[in-house]
Amino acid sequence: MTEEIIIAGFGGQGVLSMGKILAYSGVMGNKEVSWMPSYGPEMRGGTANVTVIISDERISSPIINQFDTAIILNQQSMDKFEKSVKPGGLLIYDPNGITHHPQRQDINIYQIEAADEAASMGLTKVFNMVVLGGFLKLKPIIQSEFIRKGLEKSLPKRHHGLIPENEKAIEKGKEIIKSVHQLN
C-alpha cells in the first residue's frame, strides 16, 4: 500500500497540522511516512500545502506531482491541484468559499462541509479534524487506535485535554462526507 496525499488550503486552516497528525499516526501504525510542507513567508495567511506519503515500503521521492488523494480547502488550491489527482484518484473538498467546483470526470469527488460542521460544534479549531475524518472514511489506511496515538504525539501535552474533541470531530467527518461524482 502506498497513499500519496496533498493537503492544501489557507495558512490558518491547520493544513500542516492535519498532515502532521496523519504522518504521526502512520508512524504509530508502523508505516513509512514522509511529510513535506511548503514553507516561508507565504505561510502568513497565504496558501499552505503539505504532501504526505504513507506506505508499507521505503518511500522514494517525498516530492511528487501526481497524487492519489487531494484534500482541497480553498479556491487557489483547487485551481492548482485539481489537475494533479491521478486518474481514478480521489478529490475531497470543502465547498465553503469554492466558486469553481471541480470538473474532472475521471476521478472520484467528495464534498465535506467541515467549516460549517466545526462551527456548529462550536469548535472552529477542529475543522481540520472533520476533514481528516472524511478522508479516513474513504481511505481507512490507518486504524483509529493509531490516530489517537498520532494525536498524542503531535499535540503538545498541554493540549491533550482536547483529544476527545478531536476524535469526535473525526467521527463527525466520517458521517458527513458525501459523494459528488463517482466513477463506476
Partner: peptide, 10 residues
C-alpha cells in the same frame, strides 16, 4: 537543502 531540512520522516 531546504526540502530535506523542512521535511519530516521517521
Amino acid at each position: 537543502d531546504g526540502a530535506i531540512g523542512q521535511m519530516m520522516e521517521k
